[in-house]
């Protein structure tokens, strides 16, 4: 190849690689940012978000109708145990992999008495004699998110009270 041809080919190759890297990396980068913002740098612990207001900037398009509790999890030290305390109105538990996939969801219709989950890394040995529901995470890190319908300040305060019974911790 001679003349300007090799430079054009090189530019096109760099463009394709750059394009793919950005597209593939965007969910992981944004999820890492979300984990830091929602967990304030901590993993395997619930953190109740402040009531969504006009000043909320943790995640895009937040709903002001919900009390959100987030637990960025890390399975590096083994499985994580999750308990969700039931709520009088709609609630759901969602689990997101590090690439932003919502791989598990449970709501109050399916779990009227709350939820007990043992979160394990996909591909690892499953524990015996486990009473909790075992869920396999496709990635080592991710985010567990509880939504409790609480559209008023009073209902948010009640949901905040209930959220104190939630558990997200490394299993012993």
């Amino acid at each position: 190849m001679s003349g300007w041809g090799k430079y054009v080919v090189a530019a096109l190759l760099v463009a394709v690689v750059t394009h793919l890297v950005i597209v593939f990396a965007t969910p992981n980068v944004l999820m890492n940012i979300a984990q830091q913002r929602l967990g304030n740098g901590r993993y395997n612990a619930w953190r109740l978000g402040e009531r969504v207001t006009q000043n909320s900037r943790a995640i895009v398009r937040p709903s002001p109708d919900f009390a959100y509790s987030a637990c960025p999890y890390d399975l590096g030290n083994g499985p994580v145990r999750i308990h969700v305390t039931p709520w009088r109105d709609y609630w759901s538990l969602s689990l997101y992999a590090n690439n932003s996939d919502n791989y598990f969801v449970l709501d109050d219709r399916e779990a009227q008495n709350g939820a007990d989950i043992l979160l394990v890394r996909a591909g690892t040995a499953l524990p015996d004699h486990e009473t909790a529901t075992i869920v396999q995470s496709p990635s080592q890190r991710g985010i567990a998110l509880i939504r409790r319908l609480a559209p008023t300040p009073d209902s948010y305060a009640a949901a905040a009270q209930v959220s104190r019974g939630d558990v997200c911790t490394t299993a012993r």
Binding site: V23, F24, T26, P27, L30, M31, A34, I59, V60, R61, S92, S94, Y96, A97, N99, S100, D101, N102, Y103, V105, D107, I143, L145, R147
Partner: peptide, 26 residues
């Protein structure tokens, strides 16, 4: 939104415009 079957472009778009969205079942 929130689907595990989402292709890389859809996933990136969702992450940018609707991160932590629920699946369409929910």
């Amino acid at each position: 939104a929130g689907s595990t079957a989402a292709d890389p472009y859809t996933r990136a778009i969702i992450a940018r415009y609707g991160l932590l969205a629920l699946s369409s079942r929910e």
